[in-house]
């Protein structure tokens, strides 16, 4: 038996909206420590992982580890039936073929329950080691969103370089070129509005903007985002979900022939 109650149900809706376009059919691994997912997009160049900790839920029960095969598009449709202040409860039996979602209004005077059919999904799981990064940048998630959106109107790919000058995003296309450089800041009113750059070695990598733009769909989940760049390795873009967990995106770099 699995049962999880989330007072801030809108977080679940935002999480599914942040990942549903990259991965459609995914396995959620449920254990007594929480809910985990790892899934690659169809082309296998991008990976999405999330963790929702059991202690981030108002109530969490998982008697034995379960894998729930979920069509995220269908789950998103169901979550559209929930109100933005609803409390969401998820339930599944150990051998069941449905995930029950219950939406309770704030005043608990309206209750919706929906059964989502589960599926059997074969998925490839990758072992991602803890890496030493060449450069780690933390910035407001709205800033990241704006950079990748603005550069998408210039080109399809972006060069991201970290040097002691800062972190530079450059795009080139038919209409011209654009560079956006972020420098470290410390003057913002709130700590999360600052840009922090920790560089161990200069690094330059090229990525498809289409994916980086897609990662920005997680902006409503967190006020900050961390971008980890490592020489010759995928970029990691992390959004921490306060008191609940994280969603992380990985994207393979483009390589010169």
């Amino acid at each position: 038996m699995f049962e999880a109650r989330l007072i801030q149900g809108s977080l679940l809706k935002k999480l599914v909206d942040a990942i549903k376009e990259l991965c459609t059919e995914v396995n959620w691994d449920i254990s007594n420590s929480g809910i985990n997912m790892q899934s690659m997009d169809g082309s296998h160049v991008c990976l999405v992982a999330f963790n929702l900790r059991a202690d981030g839920f108002d109530h969490f029960r998982c008697d034995r580890p379960l894998t729930l095969g979920i069509n995220l598009g269908n789950l998103a449709k169901i979550l559209k039936c929930s109100g933005s202040n609803d409390i969401i409860t998820m339930k599944a039996d150990d051998n069941g073929d449905t995930l029950t979602l219950m939406f309770e209004s704030e005043k608990q005077d309206r209750i919706t329950d929906v059964d989502l059919k589960l599926m059997s999904i074969e998925s490839e799981h990758l072992g991602i080691p803890d890496q030493d990064y060449s450069a780690e940048t933390s910035m407001p998630s709205s800033e990241y969103q704006r950079i990748v959106r603005d550069l998408s109107s210039i080109g399809d790919t972006v060069n991201i370089s970290a040097t002691k000058e800062g972190i530079k995003f450059s795009a080139m296309g038919d209409i011209g070129t654009a560079n956006i450089t972020l420098r470290q800041t410390s003057s913002a009113d709130k700590e999360e509005e600052n840009v922090k750059i920790e560089m161990k070695e200069p690094v330059l990598l090229t990525f498809a903007l289409r994916y980086l733009n897609n990662f920005a769909k997680a902006t409503p989940l967190s006020s900050t985002v961390q971008v980890f760049l490592t020489k010759d390795l995928p970029v990691q873009v992390n959004y921490n979900i306060q008191d609940l967990g994280y969603v992380k995106y990985y994207l393979a770099p483009k390589i010169e022939e």
Partner: peptide
């Protein structure tokens, strides 16, 4: 520009 799949960077757990 070509792009390797993630399996080229990360192995099986």
């Amino acid at each position: 520009m070509p792009q390797k799949t993630l399996s080229a960077f990360y192995g099986k757990p």
